Computed example of a mutant assay.
Amino acid sequence: MSPLLARAAGAPAPGFSHETFAYREDDEFAAVVAAFVREGLAHDEAVVVAEPPPRLEQLRAALGDDAAAVDFLDMTAIGGNPGRIISVWAAALDRHHRAGRTLRGVGEPAYPGRSPAELVECELHELLLNAAFDDGPAWRLLCPYDQGGLPAEVCERALGTHPYRTGADGVLPTGGPGGPTAAELLATSLPPPGEVVLRGEFGPADVPAVRRTVAQYARTSGLTAEQVEALALAASELATNSIRHGGGTGVLAMWNEPGATVVEFSDAGHLADPLIGRRLPDPPREGGHGVRLVHQLCDLVQVRSSPAGTTVRVTTWH
């Protein structure tokens, strides 16, 4: 048996195996990930790889003819906002499980070039993956981390977000330093804005005005017509959520940062489900559609919630 399939003492029982893999060189990435993929193909598993385009091309070259059997996804497209990624894996798992096949995935959400805010959301995403899939069908997800291109603390914290690590010595428990839990990270405060902020309260009759205000601010900030429409729709959904679930009122804040326009909604509500908006509600009639739409529409969505209240910050890149 290949070391990548070997399960050492204390390694995971069959179920969701969420694994991190730290690499330094392109050749190391290609060799280990290609071996991981080929093992899945040899066991007739469905293999889905989500990587930034340069890594996709590198892996295609390393796999040769085997690449034809792999479903390749552009991580910069499906996961530019990390809040969208879980729904992609959930759909793939459901599709292949219904077909009687085991899923094997490769996903690199924390790729070099991400902003600090994006990398924090990647960490939260990795933590929430465990909550999303631990009680479901068995599958493996390998998450590569580029030690040469990412801050050292990001790679170190991956040991706390992934129960297992994969390498030449097999699959082992990480046993690394644990960072905050998903609940703890969700309850933290977002960094305060550094620029001039426009702020105002809104109530039940103000949702149309909120949408118009956000659209006008987005236009004057230089966003495209498509971005303006997406941000206005997201604002309408978030204001409605504040009215329905946040005590009937909320606070809207808007500001510009270098290369981005930011809109933030705060209210007195508390999101009991940390996965709300990150996967399809089940059953479909349940709530969560509005937050899911916001995740799909926007470049970066940051949700923080505790008994003290909820804040949703939406960033649109210029």
Rank of each mutant, 00 (worst) to 15 (best):
P53T: 07
L150G: 11
A152G: 05
P173K: 10
A168V: 15
T174F: 00
R84E: 06
A183T: 13
V47E: 00
H97G: 08
P116V: 08
D169L: 14
D135H: 13
G107M: 05
G80K: 07
H162G: 10
R104E: 08
D169A: 15
L93C: 13
R60G: 09
T181V: 05
E108F: 01
P163F: 01
P109F: 01
L129C: 15
A183E: 15
F133H: 07
G167I: 07
R157F: 04
L63P: 01
T181Q: 04
H96G: 05
P54M: 04
A77V: 15
V88S: 09
A182D: 05
A183P: 04
G80Y: 09
C143A: 13
E121G: 04
V106T: 11
L56N: 11
G148W: 06
P116I: 11
L159D: 10
V106A: 10
V120K: 07
A69G: 03
Y111H: 14
V70R: 00
N130M: 05
R140C: 12
Q147L: 12
E153R: 10
E51D: 08
Q147V: 10
P54C: 00
G136A: 08
A92E: 11
A67F: 03
L127S: 03
E121R: 04
D169Q: 14
E45T: 04
T161A: 14
P180A: 13
P112K: 10
W139G: 03
S87T: 09
T102F: 06
F133R: 03
R98N: 13
L185S: 08
T102R: 15
T166Q: 10
R101Q: 15
R140D: 15
R84A: 11
L56R: 12
P54R: 03
G149F: 02
H125E: 12
A91I: 01
A183W: 08
G176R: 02
A91Q: 10
P52F: 01
A182H: 02
G176D: 04
W139D: 03
V120E: 14
G83T: 04
A158F: 05
T181C: 06
V47M: 07
I86W: 02
H96L: 05
A68Q: 08
P82S: 09
G178R: 15
F133V: 10
G176Y: 05
A69H: 11
G178K: 14
V47L: 09
T174H: 01
E118K: 00
L142I: 09
E156P: 01
T174P: 01
F133P: 01
T166K: 09
P137Q: 07
A168P: 09
V171N: 00
C143K: 02
G167W: 03
P137D: 09
A68Y: 02
A62G: 08
C143Y: 02
D44A: 12
G170P: 06
N130Y: 07
H125A: 14
A62Y: 05
G176H: 02
V70P: 01
P54F: 00
R95T: 15
R165Q: 15
A77K: 08
Y145E: 03
A132F: 05
A61W: 03
D169T: 14
P173M: 04
P52R: 07
G149P: 07
G179F: 05
E57F: 09
P109V: 10
